[in-house]
Design a protein around this nucleic acid. Sequence first.
DNA 1: GCGGTTATGTTGTTTTTACAACAAAAAAGG
DNA 2: CCTTTTTTGTTGTAAAAACAACATAACCGC
Lengths: 221, 221
Amino acid sequence: MDIVRILQSSTLFSGTGGDEIPHLLQCLEGRTSDFPRDYTIIDEGDYSDEIGIVLSGSVHITRHDFWGNRSLVANIGVGESFAEALACTARPSEVSVITAEQCTILFLNVHKVITSCEHGCTYHHTLIENMVRLLSQRNQELMKKITHLTKRSTREKLLSYLSSEAQRQQSQTFTIPFDRQQLADYLCVERSAMSSELSKMQADGILDYQRREFTLHHEEV
Amino acid sequence: MDIVRILQSSTLFSGTGGDEIPHLLQCLEGRTSDFPRDYTIIDEGDYSDEIGIVLSGSVHITRHDFWGNRSLVANIGVGESFAEALACTARPSEVSVITAEQCTILFLNVHKVITSCEHGCTYHHTLIENMVRLLSQRNQELMKKITHLTKRSTREKLLSYLSSEAQRQQSQTFTIPFDRQQLADYLCVERSAMSSELSKMQADGILDYQRREFTLHHEEV
DNA sequence: GCGGTTATGTTGTTTTTACAACAAAAAAGG
DNA sequence: CCTTTTTTGTTGTAAAAACAACATAACCGC
């Protein structure tokens, strides 16, 4: 695992020199941990002042309500980060962070990112600007998620999500990071109704799929 | 209108001295504009590198899809800001910003906020930290909005929204910033179904309401 | 106050979704 | 390879939401 390469492709460290990264990690009190599958890294109500960056594996951001209704807010893959907003606000977490598979996570002290450091790291100001961009991007992603949720029917939600995923992966054929139950939790619909809607959509020639691999045809609305 | 007092209570300027604000405004290329009701300040697809702060009135953040389905993402009141993420990402806007009533808006150049300035403004670093906090807060608000949307039934969505509003306004009795159609657009449900659900909830003794004024009773789930 | 306009509430019908139960297919683990 | 477990798909029924149409109430300009 090439940590430096992963970090250079991350939003937070973009524009920093590869040489500088080990020094920055030290300055930001970086530490890595390994977690097994289905491990709760952050629970609802927890406090944290560390941001997490996924070095291997992937994690899910989830919520649970009184009646055990689970909802999946987001999927975070390699090179992506989580808990930025949590670490910056000193408020209890609204969500849980749970590993979707075996993971290696890098934790960084957010306060060290935000405040200028006394060691005069060259790239410190770059980090702060990146932090602003990172939060802005996360913001727009949440907005996009809201776009899917505001769709009134299961079919529209599926099309909204799948077409945004096709766009993100720059291909009509793409793989989603969710199984059916997780996809239903993500779109806030009922799994079996969604399954049946998917097969109708396939019958209508809108798309093809096989497990996690989907192909959108051009007729989509 | 006491601009300095409004700004001091805003997240972006918190911790800055009142004396310094006029100087900062100049440094950030601040400009104010007045808008009539129902005026589109930012349209979907627009670019902007200015953040807006509401000095009087209020604005709505909205989206429209192909079939004219309107959805209301948020309401922004006096002292609150909008377009932070838009201004920070150089990407086209996912949403529109439309005045809900007659408004005065202060616009600030985001790049001047983020990059250190050559005039050596004392509070410049405070501003950058505030910007990070502001984006984090906006983030958590979007998360809260998602919480409402993930509720499966109209009744649950109403309770989720109304109880969060009661908490925010620190009172069992409170006024919402939406009329019925806007509330339906905000919660992504159908207006008349929502109206009828509200009257059922009133019959069940869960709440009382009269137009925009609601009272939640303690039995709420 | 009066007519026009908009906002809100009500009701019945159609459509969609949630739920439950189960069948089939795939994956996991010896 | 075979068994067990998990995932996915299917179907019928009950519940809920969307829709449409209308009644009533509040608001606005004159």
